[in-house]
Simulated assay, not measured.
Amino acid sequence: MAFHYFKELLTDEYVSKLISEKNIIDGRYGGLLLGDPHEFGGIKFLYSFPEGLRVYGEVEGFEFIVNRDSAEIFRNLITEINNSERDKKEPFVEYDIPSYIKIINAKTDKLDSKYIILDRRGGYSIINKHSTKIYLKELNDINNY
C-alpha cells in the first residue's frame, strides 16, 4: 500500500500510472463511497493544483461525500446529520445499497486503493459511515438538490 503525506505532490509519472490503471475517480459530484476502510488504508482524495495533484486526505468506504454546492446550501442540516458519537452504537456492518443511490466506486482488487479527485476549492461534506447508514436517503437527496 502506498504511503502518502499530507499535501504530497504526486509525480507526473505516478499520476500517469494511476490514470492508465483507471485508479483515479472523479468524486466532485458526490455520492456513497465504496472502498477500503481507514484500517486498511482508506481512499486518498486529491486536489488538483496548477503544479499537479496533491494528496489532501483520506476517506473510507461507506462514507458519503456531499458535493460542494449542496454542502454549502445544506451546511447546518449536514452538521446535524454527521454525528458519529450519536450514531455509532455498535460495530459497522455493510448493508445493501438501494439502486437509486449515487455510488463512487473506489474498490480495487489491487493492494493500493483508488484515488478520488475533488475540487481544491473544498467545501465538500464527508459524512461518517455510521451516520451515512442511518441517513443515506436524505444525504442522497441533499446531494442531488
Rank of each mutant, 00 (worst) to 15 (best):
I73A: 15
V93S: 10
S84G: 08
F64M: 05
Y56L: 14
L53H: 06
N76W: 09
E72G: 14
F74Y: 15
E60H: 04
G61A: 09
E60R: 01
R86P: 10
K89E: 09
F74Q: 13
R54M: 12
A71D: 11
L77M: 12
F62N: 06
R86E: 08
V93E: 13
F74M: 14
D96Y: 04
S70R: 11
K88D: 04
R86Q: 09
V55C: 11
D96C: 07
K89G: 11
N67C: 09
V93I: 10
N83G: 07
G57S: 06
I65M: 03
E72C: 13
V55S: 10
E80V: 14
R86N: 08
F64V: 07
G61L: 03
I97V: 04
N76E: 15
N67R: 11
N83D: 06
L77F: 06
F92V: 01
D87R: 00
S70L: 08
Y56Q: 15
N82D: 08
N67F: 04
D87P: 13
R86S: 07
G61R: 01
N82Y: 03
E72F: 14
T79P: 06
D69N: 15
S70P: 00
I81N: 02
A71F: 07
R75F: 10
F92R: 02
V59F: 07
E58S: 12
T79V: 10
K89H: 10
I81S: 04
I78W: 04
L53M: 14
N67I: 11
T79W: 01
E60T: 06
L77E: 14
Y95H: 05
D96S: 07
E60A: 04
E72T: 13
N76S: 15
D96K: 07
G57P: 05
E60N: 06
F92Q: 02
I78H: 01
I81T: 10
S84I: 15
Y95K: 02
E85P: 05
D69M: 12
G57Q: 00
V59N: 02
R86F: 06
E63S: 01
I73W: 13
V93G: 09
V55P: 00
E58W: 12
F92L: 01
E58T: 14
F92Y: 03
Y56C: 15
L53P: 00
E63G: 00
N76P: 12
D87E: 03
N82W: 03
Y95G: 02
E85T: 13
Y56E: 15
E58C: 13
N67L: 07
V66W: 01
N82I: 09
I78Q: 03
P91A: 03
E94M: 02
F62A: 01
V93F: 12
G61P: 00
K88M: 05
R54A: 09
I81A: 08
A71T: 13
P91D: 01
I78M: 05
F74T: 09
R86Y: 09
F74S: 13
N82G: 08
G61S: 04
D87A: 03
Y95T: 04
R68E: 11
S70G: 09
F74L: 15
F74E: 13
F64L: 04
V55D: 05
R86T: 07
E85R: 12
S70H: 11
E80Y: 12
D87Q: 01
E60I: 07
S84Y: 15
R54G: 05
E58Q: 11
D87H: 02
G61Q: 00
T79H: 00
F62M: 08
N83Y: 03
I81W: 00
G57E: 05
R54V: 06
